[in-house]
Simulated scan of single mutants.
Amino acid sequence: MSLDIPVIKTDRLILRDPRETDFPVVAEFAASERTEFIGGPQDRFSAWQGLLGQLGHWALRGYGLWMIEDRETGKAVGRTGVIRHDGWPEPELGWTIFSGQEGHGFAKEAAEAARLYAAREWGFERLISQIHPDNGRSISLALRLGAVQEEETTLFGEPCLIFRHPDPREAEDAA
């Protein structure tokens, strides 16, 4: 089976399909303490299942998480995109930057590109982001992206803040 995962290019990044060659960096990240808000740390097999699930989401829903590749180095530096797991209230714009790649603005650049693509191509106009209240870095990014906290709830038994993103096409129209 071949998946038709679109490619998005920004000034510094390529959002592309997940590949088996990405697995070493995915497994390293999954084993780190930085995954505490997304179900980790995880062992190598669970990280493998996660990579397969990333591809499976594309196959089942027609959208999902892209790998974020640094155009300069060719390295996978994170993931971003739109996901909706079973039990989630609606599609979510999510992002993860792998260890050692923080502080370069990759997450914001990639999330903006993914959000705009999702609005234009899939009709996801005002996505949510579900963020653990202790995840200050993700909350900060959601706010920089123009999202507004809409609700406090729980997700799989954990506290969760729901942030609502603006329709990115409105900013595009104003420019």
Rank of each mutant, 00 (worst) to 15 (best):
E90G: 13
I131F: 03
R12C: 11
A47W: 05
F163W: 00
R120L: 06
H85D: 10
R137Q: 05
I14R: 11
E150N: 07
Y117Q: 03
R144Q: 14
T35E: 09
G40F: 09
V26S: 02
A76E: 08
A119C: 13
L51G: 07
E170M: 10
P91K: 02
L161S: 05
T96M: 13
L93C: 04
Q149H: 07
Q49C: 11
H132F: 07
G56L: 06
I139N: 00
R120V: 09
D11R: 06
A119R: 00
T80F: 01
G105P: 09
L65F: 09
M1D: 02
W48C: 10
I8D: 04
D86I: 14
P18H: 15
P133L: 11
D11W: 00
P18D: 10
A27K: 12
M1V: 05
E121I: 09
L55D: 01
V7A: 06
L15H: 03
A174R: 15
D167W: 08
E121Q: 12
A111S: 12
L155A: 14
R84S: 06
H104G: 04
E69Y: 03
D22E: 08
R44Y: 13
W88S: 08
I139L: 09
R137C: 05
A30M: 05
G64Y: 02
E28W: 14
C160W: 06
W66A: 02
F37P: 02
T153R: 14
L116R: 11
E28R: 15
Y117K: 02
G100F: 06
T73N: 10
G53N: 12
N135H: 13
G40Q: 06
E152G: 10
R79M: 12
K9R: 14
L116A: 09
E150F: 04
E33V: 06
P133D: 05
P166L: 06
S99A: 15
P24R: 12
W122V: 00
F163L: 02
E172R: 15
